[in-house]
């Protein structure tokens, strides 16, 4: 479903991704863990061109979605194509990034209406269903500033799902939440995973990774140190760097 080949990314002289190779199968839930600054978010954000890789190839569903070398495009992608690529990927941000001037329902309806040209009625029906799915029907006409962080993040998930993406990307979705609100967001994510959604999750929630992930990727200093099942990563990591990281945080 997702394939990264020989991906490098530098910001100036700082290398944040070094020779990343990763394949994610359809329906798989993959959690990326690692210390901050290890390149986890950059990896996620390069898939929908929020960051442009320095070199390497990215595929989604066996279709090339980015190919670059020396910070230059090998393949030019038109704005329209980039928009199509983005609508195959739903993204959830650490800081929610809801549109503050729109109600919950309007936030969820916007992209289907403007990008997929659904009628207002079609978009509203779909949005109501998604808002119900994340348990916020009673908040559908509220503005984001009136919601708790957990509720805002659930709206953000509904908003991303509204484009019917093939893959959901989560960029530290619970890191900006008060501890008591983390669980409601993780529950929504678990429900998604159990429906068979392909998910790539950058997270510090080791409990979630252990319980929900099919595979866990440990990254450090821009490299993938190891990829394995949650049992092996958490109970019996093969690499010292993984062991050290886990002993620091657990």
């Amino acid at each position: 479903m997702i394939r990264l080949e020989n991906v490098y990314k530098s910001f100036g002289s700082l290398e944040v991704l070094k020779n990343i190779n990763l394949t994610i199968e359809k329906g798989e839930v993959v959690c990326i863990i690692g210390p901050s600054g290890s390149g986890k978010s950059t990896l996620l954000r390069s898939l929908n061109h929020l960051e442009r890789i320095t070199s390497g190839k990215l595929y989604i569903d066996n279709e090339l979605v980015d190919e670059r070398a020396n910070d230059r495009d090998i393949h030019k992608f038109s704005p329209k194509r980039v928009s199509e690529i983005c609508s195959e990927l739903g993204m959830v941000f650490q800081r929610f990034n809801l549109f503050p001037h729109m109600t919950v329902l309007e936030n969820v309806m916007l992209a289907p209406r403007k990008v997929r040209n659904l009628t207002k009625k079609e978009a509203e029906e779909a949005a109501l269903e998604l808002v119900a799915k994340v348990g916020l029907t009673d908040k559908k006409d509220e503005y984001p500033s009136r919601l708790s962080g957990g509720q805002q993040q659930r709206v953000a998930i509904a908003r991303a799902l509204a484009m019917e993406p093939k893959i959901m990307l989560f960029d530290e979705p619970t890191s900006a939440l008060d501890p008591e609100l983390v669980i409601e967001v993780l529950d929504v994510m678990k429900a998604l995973a159990s429906e068979g959604m392909t998910m790539l999750v950058v997270t510090h929630e080791m409990g979630f990774a252990r319980e929900v992930a099919d595979r866990v990727v440990f990254m450090d200093k821009g490299e993938i140190v190891e990829i394995d099942s949650p049992e092996n990563i958490f109970n019996n990591p093969s690499q010292n760097r993984t062991r050290e990281f886990l002993s620091r945080i657990l």
Partner: peptide, 27 residues
């Protein structure tokens, strides 16, 4: 207007001009 607003709109597939019109300018 926070950069995250541009990013969220981009991630949803909105074009630059749609983002300006529907997201950035109203704020």
């Amino acid at each position: 207007v926070p950069k995250g607003q541009w990013e969220a709109a981009h991630a949803l597939g909105l074009s630059k001009s749609q983002t300006l019109l529907y997201i950035i300018l109203p704020q």
